[in-house]
Amino acid sequence: MYKILVREELVPGIHLFKMEAPAVAAKAQAGQFVVVRIDEKGERIPLTIADWDKDEGTVTIVFMEVGATTARLALLKQGDAIADFVGPLGVPAEIENYGTVVCVAGGVGAAPVAPVARALKNAGNKIITILGARSKDLLFWEDVLGSTSDQMIVTTDDGSYGRKGVVTGPLKELLESGEKIDRVVAIGPVVMMKFCSLTTAPSGVRTIVSLNPIMVDGTGMCGCCRVSIGGETKFACVDGPDFDGHKVDWELLAARQRIYIDEEKCAYEEWRKSHAA
């Protein structure tokens, strides 16, 4: 069992758990993920590692309540424990001194971007961060990302905070500003990563995205998470989760994320009913 040492609702519907997981903490690197299972009847879901502390033996995850499993997870309290916390899985993010890196975080993507931005900053890069959310009350970790950024741009879709609009606006301006951009890292919803990749495609700036297809084991065993990269099938769990955004077949990824949409709705409804009762 893995104990929840700290829990915090960052913004409505987005939760942070700091977990007791010393073995995972000892090995974690930026860009990796864990597979979480709540209990005996739970499903295995992948969550990107948002932070870790080797000395403390803790690993932090951030998740958004989107279905039955994340809703059940959100109900757990400090001191509760979950059955499984497997990791660190996946290939770590490539970290080198590239020069200037734009880190784009969309919504809950702020959490997985944070350790990547920090590692890139420590490697000597200039970091420009674009943090986007639907509105001000869904925005979190402006301070965390700000602490590793040389420049910070915040957008909200409704204009309730920062610039009004989506993240691709400032991204396009940066690319056209004349400043040399050496790399872009974009993590967030599929549609956001897709449009960031489309935005950088004309300039050819290398754009790394972190894909989040459905997984079961997370170790290369089932092939549920297969994605198409430059026409070649890859398993996101062991070949990724980071890939070249210009080569991703986004339609396939979006379609495969919808495989269980009916079951997910059914499970969420069931859960809501039983929870209300």
């Binding site: 009847k41 739970g42 499903e43 295995r44 039955a68 499993t69 079961v216 269980y260 079951e263 997910e264 059914c266 499970a267 069931e270």
Partner: peptide, 13 residues
Amino acid sequence: LMKAYKFPEYDTP
């Protein structure tokens, strides 16, 4: 392994 044959009692579909 995940007992999907018992969905939705078990969470995995």
